[in-house]
Amino acid sequence: MSQNIQTFTSDEPIVRYKNITKSFGEHTVLKELDLDILPGEKVALIGPSGSGKTTIARLLMTLESPTSGTIEVDGEMLWHMHKRGRLISANEKHLHRVRSKIGMVFQHFNLFPHMTILRNVTEALIHVLKIPKAEANHRALEILERVGLRDHTNHYPSQLSGGQKQRVAIARALVMQPRIMLFDEVTSALDPELVGEVLDVIKAIASEGDMTMILITHEMDFARDVADRIIFTDGGVIVEQGTPAELFENPKSARLQSFLSRFMKGQPDRSADDRVAAGTE
């Protein structure tokens, strides 16, 4: 598949988690995690529910702050900054600057229900990137065309199916042209028949090459197709990682073996629970 002929332009990682620990109260969710991701690399995070995958993504998106350790983005600290030679916690201005390189698509879409589809996509272009409205509309329509929703621009999110909502959410993140995109179980809340349309859109983005992508997913075929590297997490640590072939054909750890065998039988995360939660948007 295409990822095998991917060549990386640089050996410098675009994302580097260094000794990251994250606790919620007494509960340690990530334990001294180290992870480097190269520019343009497509990384799939797999692992049982509660193993810390979402937390890994949320730390990078600045939705959660690390308890200890550092994250670097494109050679620059995300959660820290230098001030008079000392390392201190980043302020909002610093976060704002570094965050501009990162985008995220959520499991439950999180579209803005009070805005039309077009405005969902143009809002940040206009107000964050300060792009003139006409140009923003033009870019939004282009992206909406790419995700196959050109005809729905004046609808509201509640008028769309789950698959359409998720494609809007992808368009909304994509239009900001982030260098790194996070996809957190973006098909887990969808009815099975709608999963394909969303995965196809992501595959198309991935095949264009230069965007760094971190994909949290339970769709193993999809991960195998798209990812250059698969990372298996369990209990807040990376248990095993490697190419899709290495991990899927030849899992070394007992935990991954049992995860994969359990997985092939059923799809644990596409539960009734998720579908109900999705319907509340």
Partner: peptide, 17 residues
């Protein structure tokens, strides 16, 4: 819903925005 703040943060809006 909290997801609304998170989505707007992911789009790099300022706290005021």
């Amino acid at each position: 819903p909290k997801g609304q703040i998170e989505a707007s943060t992911a789009l790099n809006m300022t706290p005021y925005q």
